[in-house]
Amino acid sequence: MPAISTSVNAFVQTVALLLSALAIRPLLAEPLEPIRISKSGDHFVQGEHDQRFVVWGVNYDHDRQGRLLDEYWLDEWDTVQEDFGEIKQLGANCVRVHLQFGKFMHDPQTPNAQAVAQLQKLIKLADEVGLYLDITGLACYHKANIPPWYDQLDEQGRWAAQARFWEAIAQACKGQPAVLCYDLMNEPIIAGNEPASDWLAGPLGDKYFVQRITLDRHGREPRAIAAAWVEQMVAAIRQHDQDHLITVGVIPWVFAFGGGKPLFYSPEVSKSLDFVAVHFYPERGKVDDAVEALRAYDIGKPLVVEEIFALKAGPDEVEQFIRRSAPHTDGWISFYWGARVKELQEEETISAAITAAWLERFSELSEDAKAGRLTEPED
């Protein structure tokens, strides 16, 4: 009987290993295929048959304590793994992560090898779970993580350091199918007619999401400045990675000001960007205005609403905006802050209830969204 016993034990151990692997990768999908721009140039495709791909994702920018991902991913990797599993279960196919410049650069020329290695580890996790990554860089959200030397650089030196950051990221991400795109910077802006004194605009809570790419225009036109900056960042990436898509996530000033034309998605600036990424938070009773403003960003390239949430309107109106924008939009990215729906419901706070309700709605819409089956609601 020893031989039989040994066989049984081996079988049990094999099953245990398989179950363990499933626990780590509970929703292992088919291998991810690189996302490309269609031959027509106006939507995403994947696979050898150019199957249409619609982005349906979440921003994974900070946790429930307000910590940014690269502030805890070294010591709390299990949390990141669990969160990616939950994001997949919500029905997402994409995660937008935000990398802080100060966490990735020791000085203007030297990347932080440990941070770059951790990014590669994150890419591997995303590939295993079946989630694409929207890698947004150059973040300065927490002032405590901004190196003093960085703010002391002039415009030319700052741009050069930013380009070096993107070189390091591109080298780490080259050839990785789980990388959807590089987002050059979250919500960049340009100084007004008068010179600015701070590279960062006003805070939202304790975070600075908006960043200037110049403090002084020196008589230059905004589009010329934006075009020069985009070209320098794109050139840095393309030295090492010719394939992954590049974009820049912008504030929809057309919506905020009730008119005007896009800056970064003007013909002069957007020629090196592969698709449009714009951030929309529809307001209560103004869904029509939001849908109309979004059309200003429909420039013949894929269009992704890279930030959307039930912040200024309830889930019903946000869903209405998504459905009405579906005919000319190629993706939407909401938010996930490390708390599951059940946990949020148990908190019994207004903010938790809003987030829980939206995550449930997000999950309900996921399959139709990814399949391109969302349609405008009937009157």
Rank of each mutant, 00 (worst) to 15 (best):
N112G: 08
N112A: 14
A115M: 11
V116T: 13
A117I: 04
A117E: 09
A117P: 06
A117F: 05
Q118N: 15
Q118C: 11
L119H: 00
Q120L: 07
Q120R: 15
Q120K: 15
K121F: 02
L122P: 00
I123G: 04
I123A: 10
I123H: 02
K124E: 12
L125T: 01
D127N: 14
E128F: 11
V129P: 00
V129M: 03
G130K: 09
Y132C: 11
Y132F: 12
Y132I: 09
L133G: 09
D134C: 11
D134P: 01
I135W: 06
G137F: 00
L138E: 00
C140V: 09
C140M: 13
C140K: 03
Y141T: 08
Y141K: 02
H142T: 12
H142M: 10
K143Y: 04
A144N: 12
A144L: 10
A144D: 10
N145Y: 09
N145F: 06
I146C: 10
P147A: 10
P147I: 07
W149F: 04
W149Y: 11
W149P: 05
W149Q: 07
Y150Q: 09
D151T: 13
D151L: 15
D151I: 13
Q152R: 15
Q152H: 15
Q152L: 15
L153W: 08
D154W: 15
E155G: 01
E155R: 15
E155H: 14
Q156I: 15
R158N: 07
R158A: 01
W159Q: 08
A160W: 01
A161R: 05
A161E: 08
A161P: 08
A161F: 07
E167M: 12
E167P: 05
A168N: 02
A170E: 03
A170N: 01
Q171W: 09
A172R: 03
C173L: 09
C173F: 02
K174V: 12
G175T: 06
G175M: 05
P177Y: 01
C181N: 14
C181P: 03
Y182V: 02
D183V: 07
D183S: 12
D183P: 02
L184H: 02
L184Y: 00
L184M: 08
